[in-house]
């Protein structure tokens, strides 16, 4: 049995959020980067607005460079990767060294890509591959159901928040919410009652079991972001 303190629970949750943030934003960026081959359609100003992050990029090239790789930019993917690794490092004895190694490799892949001319899409795919390997590894390695599901709850919250803000993978929302509510029952995270009520209601609406207006986007985001008291 793993002994998990409140501090550690907090880190498990944020580990889930950060690895999902890195993975999702990279997938999003790769799609936009691909679109930019044929068009000039990506509106990074809108993206920054949707996520509520500072929009201080000169043009789309500057955005792709700094938003992905700039370690000094608090809102960059590189910074999220650092937070992901930092939370993983303080959980070594819980998630195991072999599992943690995938996070370390994801960060190395990102750093290597920033220093060479390797095609961006291929390089970013390596980062995502390492994160996918991490997901499989922790799911397999961690025996304690509650620990595993705490990480997964963090990942679900991040995914729902990102989908709601950017409409990216919006079709995955009902399934994710359903999975999330099941995971929530298997961990020990303290929740805000009103937010939980709103999300359960939304889930029932998705399933067609409750005939009411769905949550407004802003209320939905608020319910997701303020659910946990961590």
């Amino acid at each position: 049995m793993d002994y998990v303190s409140i501090t550690k629970t907090n880190r498990l949750f944020w580990l889930g959020r950060y690895y999902e943030r890195v993975s999702l934003t990279l997938r999003f960026i790769m799609e936009r980067y691909d679109e930019m081959i044929d068009t000039d359609m990506f509106d990074f100003h809108q993206y920054c607005y949707d996520l509520g992050i500072p929009d201080n990029y000169l043009d789309s090239d500057d955005f792709f460079e700094k938003y992905i790789f700039d370690v000094d930019n608090d809102f960059s993917i590189r910074n999220s990767a650092e937070q992901m690794l930092g939370n993983g490092m303080v959980l070594r004895e819980t998630i195991g060294s072999p599992t943690l190694a995938y996070l370390q490799m994801a960060v190395y892949s990102l750093d290597e890509l920033s220093m060479n001319k390797y095609p961006l899409g291929l390089g970013l795919q390596q980062v995502i591959d390492n994160i996918m390997a991490f997901r499989g590894s922790y799911d397999d390695f961690i025996e304690d159901d509650s620990v595993r599901n705490t990480i997964k709850c963090g990942a679900s919250i991040e995914l729902m928040s990102f989908c709601l803000r950017t409409r990216f993978l919006e079709e995955a929302l009902p399934t994710e919410l359903h999975k999330f509510l099941k995971r929530l029952q298997r961990c020990n995270l303290p929740t805000d009652a009103l937010s939980l009520q709103a999300l359960v209601r939304q889930s029932r609406i998705y399933e067609g079991k409750y005939d009411a207006f769905p949550l407004e986007k802003r209320d939905y985001i608020n319910a997701v972001e303020s659910l946990f008291i961590v």
Binding site: Y3, V4, I6, T7, T9, R92, E93, S146
Partner: peptide, 30 residues
């Protein structure tokens, strides 16, 4: 962190531990 993993001990920081009635406790989630 590596030795905690290798020796099956729990890695703890100050905020995880407290003393009450002359006993040391780990502040677990359960």
């Amino acid at each position: 962190s590596y030795l905690a993993e290798q020796s099956s001990a729990v890695l703890a920081e100050a905020s995880d531990l407290f003393v009450e009635n002359d006993y040391l406790y780990y502040r677990g989630n359960h």
